[in-house]
């Protein structure tokens, strides 16, 4: 079974999770046999393209474009290449793009789709994978019955593994028809350089216990020292204290970082739904009965204003050691 990975690009490079997806595909190919094929659409540098081989992609395809086609055309372009590459398993990142494109592709291929998976299939004939349901409150083993199988891997759940191969690298152009769209882009506000919350290994997050948006300076400082992304609870973004993109939980982002710091967050079940995939949770709350301590690995009962400076100092020390 050939495996095709849709590797997203950002500013000429692969998005970080692309390498994790390739590592996953390489491991999966050990079970299924077949070729590991990566496909990128957009702008990508030659040097960067080669990196896909470090993790096991033996065929590396780049479809060049200054701008991505709209969702529908992007999906159709993928369907065309999946068929061309004779791929049977198609792998996406379990992020906004993957969730947007994968189902449309699934409709075109008549494929079963498993989102939010966190590991390799238990077996491949029948093809059985485990995924989280009820926002992590339960796990479901599902059988993907169709010929084509579409998998969306949650970030930071498999890890990046070096497994170099000698690749074939191809660049192609995209036919003009794929850029026709009824949608006209009026404006875009881009964010450059920032660590993306969905991909971050460390996340420093805070809730209503911070009392005011003016107190976020120390949250950002700690994040900056640790190379972390910042996040928040829902009321914080609803109040406009922080941007909506930072909201984690049931109705916000679901993240799987290695470390999640929760400052002044009560740990409501809908918040925990977004962070239960974290490897280690550190909670700081002045109330020793706050439910966040039921899911945390390390807890500090105390005032955020007193605890944060001490953590910042310790983090700075460890980073300069």
């Amino acid at each position: 079974m050939n495996i095709l990975i849709y590797t997203e690009t950002r500013e000429g490079s692969f998005k970080k999770q692309g390498f994790e997806l390739i590592s996953y595909a390489k491991a999966l190919s050990g079970m299924t046999g077949g070729e590991v094929i990566s496909l990128a659409i957009g702008e990508i540098f030659d040097e960067e393209l080669k990196k896909a081989a470090d993790y096991g992609a033996s065929r590396i395809i780049a479809l060049e474009a200054d701008q991505l086609p709209d969702n529908r055309n992007l999906s159709k372009l993928l369907i065309q290449w999946i068929k061309q590459a004779n791929a049977q398993v198609i792998l996406f990142a379990d992020n906004n793009t993957g969730k947007a494109i994968a189902p449309f592709v699934a409709a075109g291929l008549k494929a079963g789709i498993a989102t939010g998976i966190t590991g390799l299939p238990e077996k491949t004939d029948p093809f059985i994978v485990t995924r989280k349901i009820y926002s992590g409150k339960a796990l479901a083993k599902i059988q993907v019955k169709s010929h084509y199988k579409i998998l969306l891997l949650a970030a930071n759940t498999f890890g990046i593994k070096n497994d170099p191969v000698v690749p074939v690298i191809e660049r192609h152009n995209i036919e003009a028809e794929y850029f026709e769209s009824p949608n006209k882009i009026i404006s875009t506000e881009k964010q450059t350089g920032k660590i993306l919350l969905g991909e971050a290994e460390i996340v420093v997050s805070a809730g209503r216990g911070m009392k005011s948006p003016d107190n976020w300076g120390s949250i950002e400082e700690l994040a900056q020292i640790l190379g972390a992304a910042t996040a928040c609870s829902r009321p914080v973004s609803d109040e406009g204290w922080r941007p909506h993109g930072e909201h984690v939980g049931q109705t916000g982002k679901v993240i799987n970082p290695n470390i999640y710091f929760a400052f002044g967050i009560s740990g409501a079940i809908q918040h925990v739904a977004g962070i239960s995939g974290s490897k280690v949770i550190v909670a700081v709350n002045k109330d020793h009965e706050a439910p966040i301590f039921n899911v945390a690995d390390y807890g500090i009962v105390g005032d955020v204003n007193q605890v944060l400076p001490k953590m910042i100092e310790a983090a700075r020390k460890i980073k300069t050691e």
């Binding site: 699934a106 008549k110 494929a111 079963g112 789709i113 498993a114 059985i128 989280k132 349901i133 992590g136 409150k137 339960a138 796990l139 479901a140 083993k141 599902i142 059988q143 993907v144 019955k145 169709s146 239960s276």
Partner: peptide
């Protein structure tokens, strides 16, 4: 349907 739930467990 294209998929089928085989088993549900608690984490």
């Amino acid at each position: 349907s294209m998929t089928e739930t085989v088993q549900v467990t608690l984490p």
